[in-house]
Design a protein around this nucleic acid. Structure first.
Length: 302
DNA sequence: TATACGTGGGG
DNA sequence: TCCCCAAGTAT
């Protein structure tokens, strides 16, 4: 890991924070008036889902369930239906569980502490740090895919980060974090925004980058990535695809659906296997007469 | 540490 | 068309 002088760090902060002040997207959960619950909701929805698709769903959810208590009182099936096509619908279930935990353990208020946040269902290291920073203005180390890529390029001079998060990356992010709480919080979102809009994975816009002049990767002539190859996600014909079809069928249905109509034309053994998995996950509920629906009662524990 | 887990837009 | 990948988490 290359280390930066104090002066270099200061310049980096100034340039990226200035860029952010001009180029930030006016997302609703960035409004000062947005509640911690709104921030938590946005962070979970944004896990592996592009922000452009998150925004309309976020607005609908905030209107329907403006507090953790409101969501906790909703049925899991309705929550999965409202999740729509954001992907990874188990996140909707976890969000409802998190809402219930917030009501039970924290009096209905999103907790501020990293440990308390991290203990909520569906909240990992990234989301806990992000909520601490963006909802409460705390100085926490937020390391998402954007931060990892920006750091890899500017500091390490490589096109992309390692396949999985390393200790060194977290240590680097920590070393780059401004000392001041509020400035650190803004720094986190500014680096993420830079990664999302300029320092992108596919076709980085280095001409528009405020720090290309101090970017090790740019200065080295943007060398191609040489690390271990990332495994692409298999999709066609996978269980994941069939699970998606089944859940979408149930989202669109107003009545319970027979097994044979869940994923028409798909291999029956695969449909059975996926169905069992979905039931185990609490995303599908068997009802009378060999039919299935989104969960109406209680989702399975575990 | 590696793998499962959805979905859709852009290159 | 096909492939990559997006504010990750849980196991």
């Amino acid at each position: 890991m290359r280390s930066l002088s104090t002066a270099d760090r200061g310049a980096l902060h100034r340039e990226i924070l200035q860029w952010y002040a001009v180029h930030l997207r006016p997302l609703p959960w960035r409004e000062a008036s947005c509640s911690p619950w709104g921030v938590l909701l946005s962070e979970v929805m944004a896990q592996q889902t592009p922000l452009a698709r998150v925004e309309p769903a976020w607005r609908e959810w905030m209107s329907r369930w403006p507090t953790p208590a409101a969501l906790a009182a909703e049925s899991p099936g309705e929550v999965v239906r409202a999740w729509g096509r954001l992907g990874y619908p188990r996140r909707a279930l976890r969000l409802r569980e998190a809402a219930a935990a917030i009501v039970e353990r924290h009096g209905g208020e999103v907790p501020r502490g990293l440990d308390e946040l991290r203990a909520l269902p569906g909240v990992g290291d990234y989301t806990a740090a992000a909520v601490a920073a963006f909802a409460f203005g705390d100085r926490s180390v937020v390391v998402d895919t954007n931060v990892r890529r920006v750091q890899a390029r500017i500091v390490d001079g490589v096109a992309q980060a390692a396949p999985s998060l390393t200790r060194a990356e977290v240590a680097l992010a920590e070393s780059l974090l401004p000392a001041d709480d509020a400035e650190a919080a803004t720094w986190n979102v500014a680096v993420m925004e830079l990664g999302a809009l300029v320092c992108t994975a596919r076709a980085p816009r280095c001409e528009e980058c405020p720090v290309s002049a101090r970017c090790a990767w740019f200065l080295a002539g943007r060398p191609a990535y040489e690390g271990p190859v990332r495994r692409g996600q298999a999709w066609h014909g996978t269980d994941r695809q069939v699970r998606g079809i089944i859940v979408q069928t149930l989202r669109d249905a107003s009545e319970p659906v027979a097994r044979g109509d869940l994923a028409p034309g798909r291999d029956e053994a695969q449909v059975d296997r996926c169905l069992a998995g979905l039931i185990e996950d609490g995303l599908v509920e068997p009802v009378a007469g060999e039919r299935f629906s989104l969960p109406r009662i209680e989702e399975r524990a575990g």
